[in-house]
Amino acid sequence: MRGGGLLGPRDPRTVSLVNPTGASPFLLIGDHAGRALPEALGDLGLSEEDRVRHIAWDIGVRALGEALAQRLDAVFIAQTWSRLVVDCNRDPARADAIPEVSDGSPIPGNVGLTPADRAARIAEVHAPYQDAIAAELARRAGRETVLVALHSFTPRMQGTDRPWDAGVLHDRGDLTFAHAMLAILQAAPGLTIGDNEPYKMDGIDHTVPRHAFAARLPYVELEIRQDHLSTDAGVMLWADRIADGLRSALASLA
C-alpha cells in the first residue's frame, strides 16, 4: 500500500504468542517464523517459489518453536509476517530492513517505497513484535529468564554448500549461557556445530542485542540448517536435541 496504513481487518495479528502462561525460564522468539504477506501488499511481485523459499522466512522455525514450547513449558513469541515485509532482526533504520533484492531475487513490491510506506511497515510489523518481547520480559521481572532466538539457514547460499548442522551465535553482553550451549552441542557426536557460523552475531543483528545486551540477560541465538527441519520427524529430533541442550546448559551454570 502506498502512502497509507498497512494492515487491514482481514490480516492476522503481527505476533503469535504460543503457550503464553509457560513457566519455563526460557523465552523463545522467532524473528522470521512467518511468511504471511499483508493483503495490501499482494504478492510483492514474487513468484510462489520465492514466497516459500528461505528469502521469505526461516523455514521450520515456527514448528520448532511450537515443539520446544511444549517440551519446555516455554513462551514462544513468533513473528507472523514475512521478513520481506520488514526484517524484524534488523534495525528498522537500515536500508536492508526492507530489501529490494534477496539472494538474487528482486522484490518488486519493495522498490520505490515512500517514507510513509516504510513507516507503516515499521509501525505495524516491526514495532509490535519488538514490543511484545519487551512486554514479556517486563512481565517476567524478577524471574530467571534466558532469551533463546530461533533461526534457520539454507543449506546452500550463493553457490556454496554450508557444512554445519547448526550454529550458535553470540557477541556481547552476558555470554555465559551461549558458551555453555555451544560446548554442549559441539560435544554431541556426529554433529558439525558452528561457533558464530554460518552467520556471525554482529552489528546487523537487532533483536538479541536490543533486549539482552544492556540488560545483561543470558541468551543464545540458534541457527538450524533448514533441511533438518523439512519433515515432522526432523523437527521433533531437533526439538528434543535443543530442549535437552538448553536444560543442560542452564544446569551447568547453577
Results as ranks from 00 to 15, higher is better:
residue 232 D to I: 04
residue 32 H to C: 12
residue 64 L to C: 09
residue 176 T to M: 10
residue 163 P to F: 10
residue 190 G to S: 06
residue 26 F to D: 00
residue 15 V to Q: 03
residue 165 D to C: 01
residue 102 S to Y: 00
residue 22 G to F: 10
residue 37 L to S: 02
residue 92 P to H: 01
residue 148 V to E: 05
residue 10 R to K: 07
residue 227 D to F: 08
residue 174 D to H: 03
residue 18 V to G: 04
residue 30 G to Y: 05
residue 14 T to K: 02
residue 119 A to K: 11
residue 225 R to C: 10
residue 24 S to T: 02
residue 140 R to E: 08
residue 133 I to V: 15
residue 20 P to I: 08
residue 128 P to Y: 08
residue 213 F to L: 06
residue 37 L to K: 02
residue 192 T to S: 10
residue 250 L to V: 04
residue 239 A to E: 07
residue 167 G to Y: 13
residue 121 R to Y: 04
residue 69 A to W: 08
residue 18 V to D: 13
residue 45 G to I: 02
residue 6 L to D: 07
residue 46 L to G: 09
residue 119 A to E: 15
residue 135 A to S: 14
residue 162 R to E: 08
residue 173 G to I: 09
residue 64 L to Q: 10
residue 102 S to F: 00
residue 253 L to Q: 15
residue 234 G to Q: 00
residue 199 Y to S: 04
residue 114 T to S: 15
residue 152 S to I: 04
residue 35 R to N: 13
residue 197 E to H: 12
residue 89 N to I: 06
residue 20 P to K: 13
residue 54 H to D: 14
residue 143 R to M: 13
residue 116 A to N: 02
residue 165 D to W: 01
residue 185 L to A: 10
residue 80 T to L: 03
residue 63 A to P: 06
residue 242 I to H: 05
residue 76 F to L: 11
residue 242 I to D: 04
residue 115 P to S: 06
residue 118 R to P: 05
residue 147 L to Y: 07
residue 155 P to D: 11
residue 53 R to M: 05
residue 254 A to E: 14
residue 158 Q to W: 09
residue 32 H to F: 15
residue 145 T to P: 07
residue 122 I to E: 15
residue 198 P to Y: 14
residue 209 P to V: 10
residue 198 P to E: 13
residue 47 S to Y: 11
residue 95 A to C: 02
residue 155 P to L: 10
residue 117 D to P: 11
residue 209 P to G: 08
residue 234 G to S: 01
residue 78 A to R: 09
residue 34 G to P: 05
residue 229 L to W: 02
residue 20 P to L: 12
residue 134 A to E: 14
residue 214 A to I: 03
residue 146 V to R: 12
residue 84 L to Q: 09
residue 245 G to H: 00
residue 33 A to S: 15
residue 223 E to S: 07
residue 90 R to T: 01
residue 235 V to Y: 00
residue 232 D to P: 12
residue 2 R to E: 12
residue 13 R to P: 07
residue 48 E to M: 06
residue 153 F to K: 10
residue 29 I to C: 15
residue 27 L to Q: 04
residue 46 L to F: 11
residue 172 R to S: 13
residue 202 D to V: 05
residue 201 M to V: 00
residue 235 V to K: 01
residue 29 I to W: 03
residue 126 H to W: 15
residue 224 I to Y: 03
residue 15 V to A: 04
residue 248 S to H: 03
residue 100 E to K: 13
residue 130 Q to P: 01
residue 37 L to W: 11
residue 174 D to G: 02
residue 150 L to W: 12
residue 219 Y to E: 09
residue 170 H to I: 00
residue 121 R to N: 06
residue 1 M to I: 14
residue 1 M to W: 06
residue 234 G to I: 01
residue 192 T to A: 10
residue 227 D to K: 07
residue 95 A to E: 15
residue 136 E to S: 13
residue 99 P to M: 08
residue 174 D to C: 03
residue 147 L to P: 02
residue 189 P to T: 06
residue 166 A to V: 05
residue 228 H to G: 02
